[in-house]
């Protein structure tokens, strides 16, 4: 560095430090912005309804998505020895407004499982069967749609229409 040879006032040094600091700050801000945006590409999950997933199956095949639907009790097959779980979910509307308009989550779930016209999706999951895995429960599965049209879930969350007013973290995280 040539700094020693150049006569300088304190003000100049201070000015230079500030400039350096701004540059450093901007670099950090840019890095964080990059991290946030690029991570969205890598780790964001689309939250979809069964209908949406099936409508866009080609585009979304193999992509990590999150789907929610109503569990149809008769379809639950569980192999306790190998921890293989299979079940079918029926489409429920995604927006809260629609759910409220239809009379609340419990009503929506009941309608979904009893109407054979509603789109359905078979889900496979490896792991212990959660206790809430029952008829008319709401399943939120995270995973990928396979080429065979079966959804391979690596995370399974179940919710029953609340008995408690609040939402607290669920126990069954895969």
């Amino acid at each position: 560095m040539q700094e020693a040879t150049v006569p300088k006032t304190e003000l100049q040094t201070a000015g230079r430090s500030r400039a350096k600091f701004y540059v450093g700050g901007l670099i950090i801000l840019a890095a964080v912005a990059y991290l946030i945006v690029s991570s969205f590409g890598a780790h964001a999950e689309y939250f979809l309804t069964v209908e949406e997933l099936l409508a866009r199956r080609d585009e979304l095949q193999g992509r990590q998505v999150r789907v929610s639907g109503a569990v149809i009790g008769d379809t639950i097959v569980y192999d306790a020895q190998n921890l293989d779980l299979e079940f079918t979910i029926a489409h429920v509307p995604g927006s809260n407004k629609e759910i409220e308009a239809a009379g609340g989550l419990a009503v929506v779930l009941r309608q979904a499982v009893s109407d054979p016209q509603v789109p359905r999706l078979t889900v496979r999951y490896h792991g212990p069967k959660p206790d809430l895995m029952q008829h008319e429960a709401q399943a939120i599965v995270t995973g990928k749609l396979g080429e065979d049209g079966i959804f391979y879930a690596d995370e399974l969350l179940l919710k029953c229409p609340t008995r408690y007013e609040e939402d607290i973290p669920s126990q069954s995280k895969g």
């Binding site: 890095a31 964080v32 991290l35 946030i36 991570s39 969205f40 890598a42 780790h43 964001a44 999950e45 689309y46 939250f47 979809l48 999150r66 995604g94 995270t142």
Partner: peptide, 16 residues
């Protein structure tokens, strides 16, 4: 569309 981010996103963004 609802896009959610899970722990991997947070880990990757906040760890550095």
């Amino acid at each position: 569309e609802k896009i959610t981010v899970g722990p991997p996103w947070f880990d990757r963004v906040t760890a550095p």
